[in-house]
Amino acid sequence: MADDSGLSRLQQRLAAIPQDVKEAVQPALEKQAEAMARTMKTLVPRETGALADSIAVTPGGESTPAYSQPGGSMVVPANAAAITVGNTDVRYGHLVEYGTAKAHAHPFFWPSVRLHGGQAKQAIKRAVGRAVRKNWGKGS
């Protein structure tokens, strides 16, 4: 029961965040996702360039490319940005990242996430802080 009340309190607090604050954070999310994607494109092995070209950033409210990893096409939730690899023509990003029995792994996705993760968290926290200060007392 304690978990349910804690969850409901969290949901109430999240629902109380003014829309202005939520909207102000989206550019920071997208900017950080773009930085990660650029690093991924730099690290990915290049034979034809198709894998690097398939790396995409999808902002909240939009659909990711069909056949992208992880999970194929999906609608990205609000206040989020998704970085995907792959499309209808490129379906082998996970094989490059993790390797196969016949090919060595060439990680490019997770090293980029680890490299940018801390900086992204700080940038998003700063954006939230600025938006809250700017919108303090305005109400929903």
Rank of each mutant, 00 (worst) to 15 (best):
V85S: 10
A123N: 05
G93S: 02
T39K: 14
D3E: 10
A101L: 12
R114M: 13
G49P: 05
H116L: 14
L51M: 12
Q122K: 13
V57K: 00
L115N: 06
L115H: 03
S63Q: 14
G117S: 12
A66P: 10
Q119W: 07
A81G: 09
A16N: 02
V128L: 14
G49F: 09
E62A: 14
F108Q: 07
E23H: 03
L10A: 11
S112I: 09
R13H: 03
N135C: 07
A81Y: 06
A16Y: 00
D4Q: 11
G6N: 05
H106V: 07
A50P: 02
P111K: 05
Y92K: 03
G93P: 04
Q19H: 04
A37P: 01
T48R: 12
E47D: 14
Q32F: 02
E30F: 13
P107E: 10
R46G: 01
A101P: 02
Q11F: 06
I83Q: 02
A35D: 02
T42S: 13
P45V: 11
A66Q: 11
V75H: 03
E34Q: 15
V21G: 00
Q122V: 13
A78N: 14
V132R: 00
V132Y: 02
T64F: 12
R114C: 08
S73R: 15
T42W: 06
D3L: 01
G60A: 09
D3T: 05
P107C: 08
P77R: 04
A28E: 11
G99Y: 00
A15R: 13
V85N: 05
L10E: 02
P107G: 06
L115R: 15
K31S: 11
A66L: 11
V57A: 01
I55F: 13
